[in-house]
Amino acid sequence: MTKALTLKGRDYDTKMSLGARMWKYRAFYFFLLPAIIWYAIFCYYPMYGVLIAFKNFKFNLGILGSDWVGLRYFRNFLGDPYFWTIVKNTLVISLLKLFCGFPAPIILALFLNEVRNVRYKKLVQTLSYLPHFVSWVVVVALLTKLLSPNNGAINELRQAINPNASSVFYLGEPGWFYPIIVLSDIWKNVGWGSIIYLAALTAIDPEQYEAAELDGANRWQKMGHITLPGIYPTIGILMILSLSGILNAGFDQIYLLQKPSTLHLSEVLDTYVLKRGLQQGHYSYSTAVGIFRSVISMVLIVTVNGISRRTSEVSLW
């Protein structure tokens, strides 16, 4: 009785007609309206725009007015002499980043979790977030100077150790491309990535550690039996996210770091779409390549999430 009074009839919703309920909550539709319109224009209209891939798109004819060509551009892409190189590069870069980059924030978080000096910990954390807040353009500008063959710090260091060493043009050297991609990716993201693991670590009940200490567990036993199991669910969620982003090798970084001399290793799906589409004007072809990528990504995230939900109860939705 009192509950019904304080809720002022909100519990009787189910007895109202749909129209009456919608009218009752009309204010919330009003709040959602700008978002609904924006999503229709900026997300759903481009989805409708994927029709471009099945047409011979001409700007003056519009999306509907252009001629249908069926799957011609998809076949063209599968027959593209660069197809395998691009798919291989995309996967290689993503997998390298996954294997090397995924554990890095976990390790940083485990290290930070051991630090007892609060101010030192806070300082390290604040500094570690810094690279996340600068753009890849800035990072590449910094790298260009650091790795420059003309008195860049790294070449100078090498020559200080061995005066006979010749300067290396790291950014143009194919053999250095993947190491630079992986290391700069870790450099930029490790601090930010550690936030979520640190949160999971602080959520572990300290009593578990006390109990383990009473049982005589050493530092490594505590880490293996309490700390790591405590963050397994977090690791799982982030692993799903990373696996489903496997076709997203990191556009900004790769586009800004690739040079003509490294193209055979650095051309990925995203950079190829940009070059063929925006720079050369092959709109329909690039859209087809883009769809190829989006569809595989979507299938991947749904599959990985499904498998994970069934086997470990860790899932995104």
Binding site: I41, F42, C43, Y45, P46, M47, Y48, G49, V50, I52, F57, F59, I63, D270, V273, L274, G277, L278, Y283, S286, T287, G290, I291, R293, S294, V295, M298, I301, V302
Partner: peptide, 13 residues
């Protein structure tokens, strides 16, 4: 967040 039109349809828009 799962599917997007991609770069070119966005550019056309």
């Amino acid at each position: 967040t799962l599917f997007s039109g991609g770069l070119i349809p966005t550019y056309v828009l």
